[in-house]
Design a binder for these strands. Structure first.
Length: 811
RNA sequence: GCGAGAGUGGCGGAACUGGCAGACGCGCGAGACUUAGGAUCUCGUGGGCAACCGUGGGGGUUCAAGUCCCCCCUCUCGCACCA
């Protein structure tokens, strides 16, 4: 392919210029309007930047460059989420220290980002592995600990033998580890846990404050999973004690015919009768062996065993048999349910399986054939106490729920209750490559290190294998491990777990604001100025993990006065996945991976940037097309030839003369379209408008500077290198990125003629071309003549004229 | 099963509150300039010979529906015994 411009030379030239002159530095002049434009910082993997990364990064880069030209003080930073499993697993395999591979990978990522011309303020670069950074990660942990939001508990954890670590619920996909896809088993362990459940309500309610994609809001809501109902106590029939259940349907209490405990429920030992001891023990053993995945695979088929015990229904004193079954989960609610087979599908299936009775208490269905769960229709029946003093009969479900809840409370047998699916966040990993906890153990008690001793630096080691006892490799480092408690001087042992990868990414956006502050996490004045993040772009794979954890930490920091906003990210957008040329997900095994370096070598960074944005809507999943990159390359070459002759000099077609009215209009329309489209992140249509402009101007013999020059400014956020070069060739001082953004005159975007489509009965029959001021009557007269063929001889019922849009004869 | 989003030419995709469906790009076709072109420029390009038909399918509202309403189908993502 012949080159009209040498992208290698031009891109290198302007990248060197930016490096030297730093036009993208965010200013600490806090009087100017600000714009904080953030990318999800990457994990610097060994495979380098991906074209999918580049899509999001190019989008934020265009917005950042545009906002700077609009006079905003823009914060557009980049950093590295560099702790994590892959680097450590690689170290276990090769013996190369994760710090070394991480540094190499960061260098590769940074080189690639600079090659793309991304306008980051590199003076604010940070890495989560830097002790000066994780010092503050540890500091936040101490704050969580002080407030009782970080605690140690013996909890059933997700243990992944292959990775040698525990994992958070959020890190498990279909019963396998998200990293590597290994089996995960349940196992009780003493672990650090963060009390994210204390913030469940606020995490849910504050979702109304942010401008996020509906799917992400929905996923967070579902993950938090709030449901409102009641807790009810069922007294044991033949011994002391009670079974407490959680239900969202207290209105169906009279329909309970049996009860179910989770196999792990502590009460099972108490209530199981002598005859049932054996089958119950066998069932519990089998249930314990099943992984979560197996439990899911077994799906709808219900199994369970009768315990031999009974409890009393508080509303009618009936004896209800108590079963155990693994469809009841110890981890939700109270681990026990009242079963109402008539109005719950699971209970109905179980009752069928074991021939338990089914009693209708909401009319409207046929409960012998299927559970009737439609609460909106139907009335409560068969629901009054034996003495007739209390009845729900005739009410709707929504009326019955508060009434029975109040009644139970008065009897001392129940209360209104709220339950969440959200569990506390399992925060420890048995790994080397993570932030050490600022905690020492003295006589079995966890004691925090004083703040002044932070950071607690990760000790050097060349043994990255887990200790084998379930402890992290840090447990092998005696010199580091054995210490004294700085407050009591007693002998102490350091906490050997490290924090999960999410820790560092929970608050990095705050450190970009004040990355070198040695005494504070962030200067409060700067924080008030820059926060919240105005635009945050990254993959949807973080819809619950990172984005929920970060919101949690942010709210804690808000409560202790470190930040001034209750939510960190005002507007969030997910870039879509970029598929391979074959419409399949890119993967090494399919051999359809597109390497950004190759593309830039061949077509240049500007063409790659432009293509990434031209592919389609930012959020959509779409396939790569190298032909498409060629297409935008042709566009850039046309733009170049608009202004530059074959000797590489400013073309004679570029003149000082006044532009034609048509050219002025085209320019103003283009400014309007490009401006509005960038604001709405519709980059694909902005580019298509610039193509229209270029196609038109190519036809012209004379191209006025007053039209060409603003166009170069419009192009500059998208294709910054070519734009700098053209701006220079036009005789201006660099950098084009520091020029004011062109403005448009709305009057100039309107044409002087209009084309009015003429319809007869809604079908297009003709078009008339008239001056803008033409009256309705005149248009109708002309239209009648044009469409005569279709209306003559017919009775005209109505004529509809839409101002400047359309004329329709109804005949 | 539940929830969210989507379905438009050969392909990627345009179409603001209902108002010319298919902008722009790819691909394809024709022509021009050329020793030549897989470079560049110009023109054409939803289907059908036509009347007409066309935005996943079927109904409806309307002068007018890709856009609004009802029913159904397909795809993508998420959740999945959550009481």
């Amino acid at each position: 392919m012949s080159k009209t411009y040498d992208h290698h030379a031009i891109e290198a030239k302007w990248q060197a210029y930016w490096e030297q002159h730093r036009p993208f530095k965010a200013s600490d002049d806090l009087s100017r309007p600000k714009f904080y434009c953030l990318d999800m910082f990457p994990y610097p993997s060994g495979s380098g930047l991906h074209v999918g990364h580049l899509e999001g990064y190019t989008a934020t880069d265009i917005v950042s460059r545009y906002k700077r030209m609009r006079g905003f003080n823009v914060l557009h930073p980049m950093g590295w989420d560099a702790f994590g499993l892959p680097a450590e697993q690689y170290a276990v395999k090769t013996g190369i220290h994760p710090a070394i591979t991480t540094a190499q990978n960061i260098a590769t990522f940074k080189r690639q980002m600079k090659r793309v011309g991304l306008s980051y303020d590199w003076e604010r670069e940070l890495s989560t592995t830097d002790p000066q950074y994780y010092r503050w990660t540890q500091w936040i942990f101490l704050k969580l600990f002080e407030r009782g939001l970080a605690y140690v508990a013996e909890v059933p954890v997700n243990w992944c033998p292959a990775l040698g670590t525990v994992l958070a619920n959020e890190e498990i996909v279909d019963g396998k580890s998200e990293v590597g896809g290994f089996d995960v088993i349940r196992k009780p362990m003493r672990q650090w846990v963060l009390k994210i459940t204390a913030y469940a309500d606020r995490l849910l309610e504050d979702l109304t404050l942010v401008d996020w994609p509906p799917s992400t809001l929905e996923m967070q809501k579902n993950w938090i999973g709030r449901s409102i109902g009641a807790e009810v106590d069922f007294v044991l029939a033949d011994q002391n004690g009670a079974v407490r259940v959680f239900t969202t349907r207290p209105d169906t209490l009279f329909g309970a015919t049996y009860m179910v405990l989770a196999p792990e429920h502590p009460l099972v030992d108490v209530i199981t009768s002598v005859e049932q001891k054996e089958p119950v023990a066998a069932y519990r053993k089998a249930a314990a062996k099943k992984s979560d995945l197996q439990r899911q695979e077994l799906g709808k088929e219900k199994t369970g065993v009768f315990t031999g015990g009974y409890a009393i229904n508080p509303v009618n004193q009936e004896r209800l048999p108590i079963w155990i079954a693994d469809y009841v989960l110890m981890s939700y609610g109270t681990g026990a349910i009242m079963a109402v087979p008539a109005h719950d599908e699971r209970d109905w299936a179980f009752a069928q399986q074991y021939a338990l009775s089914i009693r209708e208490v909401i009319s409207g269905g046929n409960v012998q054939e299927a559970a009737f769960t439609d609460t909106d229709r139907g009335k409560v029946v068969n629901s009054s106490t034996g003495d007739g003093t209390f009845s729900l009969n005739g009410l709707t479900s929504s009326e019955a729920i508060p009434k029975i809840t109040d009644w139970l409370a008065k009897q001392g047998q129940g209360t209104r209750a709220v339950n969440y699916k959200l569990r506390d966040w399992l925060f420890a990993r048995q790994r080397y490559w993570g932030e050490p906890f600022p905690i020492v153990w003295v006589d079995g008690e966890a004691r925090p290190l004083p703040e002044e001793q932070l950071p607690l630096v990760l000790p050097e080691s060349n043994n990255f294998k887990p200790s084998g006892t379930g402890e992290s490799p840090l447990a092998n480092l005696d010199q580091w491990l054995v210490t004294t408690d700085p407050t009591t001087n007693k002998p102490a042992r350091r906490e050997t777990n490290t924090m999960p990868q999410w820790a560092g990414s929970c608050w990095y956006y705050l450190r970009f604001i004040d990355p070198k502050n040695a005494t504070q996490l962030v200067d409060p004045e700067k924080e008030r100025y820059w926060m919240p993040v105005d635009l945050y772009i990254g993959g949807s794979e973080h819809a619950v993990l990172h984005l929920l954890y970060a919101r949690f930490w942010h709210k804690v920091l808000f409560d202790i006065g470190v930040v001034s906003t209750s939510e960190p990210f005002r507007k969030l957008v997910h870039q879509g996945i970029v598929l391979g040329e074959d419409n399949q997900k890119m993967s090494k095994s399919r051999g359809n991976v597109v390497n950004p370096d190759d593309m830039i070598d061949q077509f240049g960074a500007d063409a790659v940037r432009l293509y990434e944005m031209f592919m389609g809507p930012l959020e959509a999943m779409k396939p790569w097309s190298t032909r498409g990159v060629e297409g935008v390359t042709r566009f850039l070459e046309r733009v170049w030839r608009l202004m530059v002759d074959e000797q590489g000099r400013l073309s004679h077609a570029v003149v000082l003369a006044e532009p034609s009215l048509d050219h002025q209009r085209l320019l103003h329309q283009t400014i309007k379209k490009v401006t509005e489209d960038i604001e709405a992140l519709r980059f694909n249509t902005a580019i298509s408008q610039m193509m229209i402009f270029t196609n038109e101007m190519t036809k012209a013999q004379q191209r006025s500077r007053s039209v060409i020059e603003p166009f170069v400014l419009l192009l500059s956020p998208f294709a910054p290198h070519v734009a700098e070069e053209l701006w220079d060739l036009l005789g201006h001082q660099p950098s084009v990125s520091q020029q004011p953004w062109p403005t448009f005159d709305p009057a100039m975007t309107l044409s002087e003629r209009m084309i009015i489509p003429v319809q007869v009965n809604g079908r297009l029959r003709a078009k008339i071309d008239v001056p803008v001021g033409t009256s309705r009557d005149e248009i109708e007269r002309l239209a009648r003549a044009e469409a005569a063929e279709w209306i003559q001889g017919k009775e005209s019922k109505k004529v509809i004229y839409v101002e400047k849009k359309l004329l329709n004869f109804v005949v």
